[in-house]
């Protein structure tokens, strides 16, 4: 079964490669996990979050990070914490002006078609088969294109390291825990069930069930279902998302496709230019240059 799939993928990959040079661009699509429902996912239900920041501490423990411990205290909730290269998830109080305030956990959304992965020139950012988008330090050049490309402004840079700065972002605990059959550190630390770990299809089903059962409470939207082509971290809320600092007006079209439209043209353009210039250069040269071409000092 798995062999069949990988062989089919291989075939598909080869077909895409050929198609991208020969066929119109609409035929060649950037690969991604968009159509797959069995990727790892987390459902964040903001109505159940009490702002204890246990998830932040759990994240630090699970990934051996060393952000200042006092940032993770509950009594610091009044002051806003920004993620850094060694602080991959934050819980802050959001909203409050025109809506009741809510505690909002943030981390990498682990997009189904990640912009960061598509822009990274050396595949330092990598989407694993099971969904998590991970960072591989040894490949990184430090160009920070991932930071600029990310629609959620997730990747962070180690600005005060002169020689070996890293990009820091939530790894979904992929290697530390997920691939060993454990849930992510933050989910395990959550005492209220605000975070639920599972497969994306199951969690979407669950989220829709919660929306249906309490339409009076929830905003009728699952953030992450369609945003930028879908993310594996999904959010439910009882306060409109844009009032809690969630990005609005995000394209539903996966961002890598904007670039792929151009990239897929490149081999064709190069071929056309090569033959055009070749013909031009040699046909014109025989007419006008003979006898004087070499004399320029």
């Amino acid at each position: 079964m798995s062999e069949g799939i990988s062989r089919r993928n291989l075939f598909k990959g080869a077909l895409v490669a050929v198609a991208s040079t020969v066929l119109p661009r609409s035929m060649a699509k950037a690969e991604g996990l968009a159509s797959r429902g069995d990727v790892f996912a987390v459902l964040v239900d903001l109505t159940r979050c009490i702002g204890c920041r246990s998830c932040m501490r759990g994240c630090q423990r699970a990934n051996d990070l060393n952000a200042p411990q006092e940032l993770m205290d509950m009594d610091h909730l009044s002051s806003r914490i920004e993620p850094t290269y060694n602080l991959w998830t934050t819980v802050n109080v959001e909203g409050g002006a025109s809506s009741p305030p809510r505690h909002v956990k943030r981390q990498c959304m682990h997009c189904l078609e990640p912009a960061c992965v598509s822009v990274c020139p050396v595949a330092a950012l990598h989407q694993t088969e099971q969904g998590p988008v991970i960072y591989r330090e040894s490949r990184c050049i430090g160009c920070r294109y991932c930071m600029v490309a990310c629609p959620f402004d997730v990747p962070r840079f180690e600005w005060n390291n002169g020689l070996t700065p890293v990009i820091g972002k939530c790894q979904f605990c992929a290697q530390q825990r997920l691939f060993k059959g454990l849930p992510p550190g933050c989910v395990e630390s959550c005492p209220t069930g605000a975070l639920k770990f599972g497969k994306r299809d199951d969690l979407l089903f669950e989220a829709k069930a919660r929306l249906r059962s309490r339409p009076d409470v929830y905003v009728d939207h699952i953030f992450g279902e369609d945003e930028v082509g879908g993310t594996t971290w999904l959010y439910l809320s009882d306060v409109p998302f844009d009032q809690l600092g969630f990005k609005k007006n995000l394209s539903q079209r996966p961002l890598p496709s904007f670039t792929w439209d151009v990239v897929s043209w490149i081999p064709g353009i190069a071929a056309v230019l090569a033959s055009l210039f070749g013909v031009l250069a040699f046909s014109l040269s025989t007419k006008s240059d003979q006898g004087k071409g070499d004399k320029h000092p």
């Binding site: 950037a30 598509s118 822009v119 020139p121 050396v122 151009v262």
Partner: peptide, 12 residues
Amino acid sequence: HPWAMWQHRSIM
């Protein structure tokens, strides 16, 4: 690294 570690979908 771009010479050794290909990622052909990247403009960079």
